[in-house]
Amino acid sequence: MIEVLPRNILRFAVLVFLQVFLLNNIQLSGFINPYLYVLFILLLPFETARWFLLFAAFTLGLTIDIFSKTPGLHSSATVLMAFLRPYVLNYLAPRGGYDPGTYPRVYYYGPGWFFKYASVLIFIHHLFLFYLEVFHFYDFFFTLWRVVLSSAFSVFLVVLSQYFIYRR
């Protein structure tokens, strides 16, 4: 088993690479933009210090921002998501809490739990990101529709990744 830190650094690099060079170039029917990179925040261990969570989210967001030339946009949304992660985890905790030595993954807590966990956080992230990007409310429902479709697609990719890469 690979150690936690190198494993996460590797995951960070791979996700940023995928996002920047592959997913950012895919725009399904013009307005669906999946953001898979948030998977990094989702998969951090339960015991991660909360301050580290924020810094990691900021670094991740800023890295994506640098490549997509939108400084502050993704970092802001990702930091918000990281901030809410402990509360969401708390809310979804199984009776008796999370077992030590486990990670927030389908393998340990099942697809239902993981789906709820991922979709809540991804929806919040996308909601904040898309509205911050358009920065007005004139086309409120159009933007909301984009948020919903993109979130669905991102959740789909995130859950899928669990079955393809992280089976163990």
Binding site: R50, W51, P71, G72, S76, F83, F135
Partner: peptide, 27 residues
């Protein structure tokens, strides 16, 4: 500290956003 840190980092992000993106700055 978690909330304060969040607000601080969020402020940094938003400052970046509003200073370095022409569209947001204009709005």
């Amino acid at each position: 500290h978690f909330v304060f840190l969040f607000v601080l980092i969020q402020l940094i992000s938003l400052t970046l956003l509003f200073q370095h993106n022409n569209y947001h700055r204009t709005v």
